[in-house]
Amino acid sequence: MPSITEYTGHGFSEPIVTFFSAIYRTKKTSSLTYYDQNNCLIKEGTADIRLIKFFEEYLYLPIAQVSTRAAAIVVRMQNGCLDSYILYVFVTVVALILFLGAYA
């Protein structure tokens, strides 16, 4: 028989998320609708906890974006055209000759 009163993962981590609400920018909202004017009989309600994924958005994503940009530059250089590869070899040899001539 499955247990439906079991604590979920979100519920388990709710106190920590509230303690660190300044980092996670936790926003809790709730609303209730009533059947009557005096707000006694509850019809339905919603509750919402919103937080930003701090480590993903501010730590991992910037590093990932830097490496994606570096990879895009390398993709443009490795374009499968043999002439550009021969050009790279030529430029490297000329630079090496100049470097050795200047410092060795």
Partner: peptide, 20 residues
């Protein structure tokens, strides 16, 4: 958490947060 009762889950969740 193991017994599947919400009171145990509540106690565990609070205890782990305080411990952290």
């Amino acid at each position: 958490l193991d017994a599947g009762c919400s009171f145990g889950g509540m106690g565990s969740s609070r205890e782990m947060s305080i411990s952290a």
